[in-house]
Amino acid sequence: MEGGEIEVFDIAWRRDRPVREAIERFVQGHPEASAYHRPVVLDVMRGVLGLAVGYLVARDGAGLRGVLPLALSSSPVFGRFATSLPVVNYGGVVLAPGQRYDGTVARALVRDGGAWARRRGARDLTLRHTEARPLALPATRRKETVLLPLPSGDPEALWRSIGPKPRNLVRKARRCGCEARVLDGPGAVGAFHRVYAENLRDLGSPSLPQRWFEALRAVLGRRFAIHVVTCEGRLAGAAVSVLHGESYEVPWASTLRAYRSQAANMLLYWHLMEHAIASGARVFDFGRSTPGSGPYRFKLQWKGARAQPLPWYVVGRQPEAGATAGSLTPDNPRYARAIALWRRLPVPIARVAGGVLTRWLP
């Protein structure tokens, strides 16, 4: 139930240590929060990507009633825009049990979030929610996530349920000498980033800097893992997994084109699903995709997977005119020339340049 006087404030980043600790406890035990709602992730956005960040907290005499993490990007192409949250898949308002998304706390957080963005010259604020909420805001639904329920502690049950095509392709990868595993140690992030950056270069998109993944691994600890697939001993693909509660998300995954015919990507994802079950997860989150795209179709081929639209609520401007409306994807004609040029860059140059450009993107 709602009641009492609500105070909304932006935490003082260096001084409010007790508040930060309270937020960590609030978010880590919350079924509607993501790993990215943790203040330590905003530390990484600020320290590695150079983004301005904020964290709104609503509280009353009984404690925290809701939170809203914020980050501001400034781009010569898109202008200034605020997002909750950029770079990652999820963000938005999270409320304490008993609070309503059409109630006082949610309205106060959205109002103050919009004011935070306007004071910094942002064109709008986008809230990346995972489910529809009665926030009385316009929303876009350009992206969808794909979710696969997982049986508790039983990878064999999942193997039987995923369908004959995925099973046959996983077997094919093994016949081709491919193996998948968790990769630990100091070289793990570098191995992942080599594959990830080359794959994004081939797609015409800039890659996040290696320091982003190193810092995220440091703050998330055992909830963050690097996975690789090798074929006859050669690195063919790699992925990042993030565990939060019962959700096992794969926000970044890539395989090299030379190994697609060997179904290395299928073996990598089957390994990820096995690892998710062993980690105690109940939902495998493939991450967001554009409906109808190749990655979207890849995710839905696993029997039992279902698509879930992602409502991105926009504060301060109609979505069609918002800074995040332009999507830097290979099928966007507005950026066709830039994408074609990026695809011709040598991978080492693309890795360095991508680390600069990604801080400007939605």
Rank of each mutant, 00 (worst) to 15 (best):
S73N: 12
G185V: 05
R174P: 02
D10A: 01
E7W: 04
A281C: 02
R160Y: 06
L272M: 12
V93C: 04
A180Q: 11
H37P: 00
A22H: 08
R38A: 07
L127W: 02
V57R: 04
A353H: 07
E274N: 09
E2C: 02
G163A: 08
N332I: 01
G237C: 06
V240T: 08
V105W: 06
W252V: 04
S34Y: 13
F26R: 03
G354A: 08
L51K: 02
A106W: 08
P348G: 05
L345C: 10
A236S: 06
A180W: 09
L208E: 14
A197D: 00
G287W: 01
G114C: 12
W159D: 03
N168Y: 14
H37R: 06
I11W: 10
R175G: 05
M273K: 06
R223D: 15
T83K: 12
R282W: 02
F213W: 06
G98D: 11
A33S: 13
T130V: 14
Y196G: 01
L109E: 05
A353T: 12
A239D: 00
P164N: 13
V94M: 06
P164W: 11
K299T: 01
W252C: 02
P291V: 03
G61S: 11
L216I: 01
L147E: 05
P333T: 07
A263I: 07
R17K: 15
S254L: 07
W312D: 06
P311S: 09
A336D: 13
Y296F: 14
H129P: 05
L328T: 00
R142Q: 15
K165D: 14
